[in-house]
């Protein structure tokens, strides 16, 4: 197998190119320094700042694998942050670790319930995922505002601030959360049959049902995972700004998460998914974000610049482009490894 035929080749190449462009433009980009036993540098910032998007995108990957989509992740982030900060704000001792722990656990439970609600609409009631999660996407921020009483709740709590800004040993705590979640999902996928059953449900729901797969439970679970991870992302976000901002928290993050999943090579049609691909997709987006900042693109134009780069990456990844490139290179070969879904369907009517 040639290396460029690996499904992660193009996403990885895009990431490497981005990093290289940055490194050439500003040599200090690659520099990582150790101060007081903590690592600092542009790369470390990217890893730390990517945590919320990373968590949301990982949940989104599982949901998309089941042929679904979760538009409510941004709203869940807002609710989660609102719940956590309202609890901390209302407690007698906002600075106590115990208070923050309770707040985090309650916020995650609420997020789990919200994810379960999405899963219920999709798997039990059979509502289209885009519609089902749209409900919470629209209602969620209202709920968050209700919880904070319409204000931006701000708190001053050292344990809360630690979540986004603190260091555990030499690495940022937020980055460690990302790593733990990635590892956990990877292990569950490898060590249990959940990965392959999720793919089966996403590729052919009816065949899976007839084969005895409990597809309803699998789909339901995917939305619950997405909910909890979005909740965790919401807490990191709130910790970063030390406030629960119901309108800004996770704004448009659902779209960036979908983008990260797609950049990572997982098809929106469901089925085959790649945790590693999504991780790379998130890093591409986060690096691009930092590149735009550094290059001094005027903030009004930065979405346009961002869009151009994304379009370029997506085009480079599309099977058609790759086939065309291969044909240009004269390396014509049967597409044995190509996905069956890519092949034109021959309709033979009776």
């Amino acid at each position: 197998m040639r290396i460029w035929r690996h499904r992660l080749f193009w996403p990885s190449a895009a990431l490497v190119v981005l990093v290289a462009v940055n490194a050439i433009a500003r040599p200090q980009f690659l520099r990582i320094t150790l101060q007081d036993g903590e690592l600092y540098g542009a790369l470390i910032d990217i890893l730390r700042n990517s945590a919320p998007l990373m968590l949301v995108a990982l949940g989104m990957t599982i949901v998309i694998a089941t042929r679904g989509i979760d538009l409510s992740v941004g709203a869940v982030m807002a609710v989660s942050g609102a719940v956590a900060l309202t609890i901390i704000d209302g407690s007698g001792d906002p600075g106590a670790t115990g208070t923050v722990l309770v707040a985090v656990v309650v916020a995650l439970l609420v997020s789990l319930v919200l994810g379960a609600w999405n899963g219920f609409l999709v798997s039990a009631l059979g509502i289209q995922p885009i519609v089902a999660t749209l409900v919470l996407m629209l209602a969620g921020r209202g709920v968050a505002l209700l919880i904070t009483g319409g204000f931006i709740t701000t708190v001053n709590s050292a344990p809360l601030a630690y979540i986004a800004s603190g260091y555990l040993t030499v690495l940022p705590f937020a980055f460690i959360i990302s790593v733990v979640v990635i590892t956990a999902l990877g292990l569950v996928e490898r060590r249990t049959a959940l990965g392959v059953l999720t793919e089966a449900v996403g590729i052919n729901p009816e065949a899976s049902r007839l084969a005895g797969v409990r597809s309803r439970g699998i789909i339901w679970g995917a939305y619950m995972v997405s909910g909890v991870l979005a909740g965790l992302a919401g807490i990191i976000y709130a910790s970063n700004i030390k406030a629960a901002d119901a309108n800004a928290a996770g704004f448009l993050i659902e779209l960036y998460a979908i983008l990260a999943v797609v950049l990572g090579g997982t098809s929106l049609a469901g089925g085959k998914f790649s945790i590693a691909g999504t991780v790379i997709g998130v890093l591409i987006i986060q690096t691009l974000d930092s590149t735009i900042l550094f290059l001094g693109v005027p903030s009004a134009q930065s979405p346009v610049f961002f869009a151009f780069v994304v379009v370029a990456v997506v085009i480079a990844q599309s099977p058609r482009t790759r086939n065309a490139l291969r044909a240009l290179g004269g390396a014509r070969r049967p597409r044995a490894a190509a996905s069956v879904q890519d092949r034109p369907k021959v309709e033979v009517a009776s």
């Binding site: 392959v196 793919e199 089966a200 065949a207 007839l210 879904q341």
Partner: peptide
Amino acid sequence: GEGIVADLTVAENIVLGIQARKGWM
């Protein structure tokens, strides 16, 4: 439409029935 899971391998398709019976855990 209702039999094979086209994008999975032969092995994954064969064990799908057993795996579904055993559960994902």
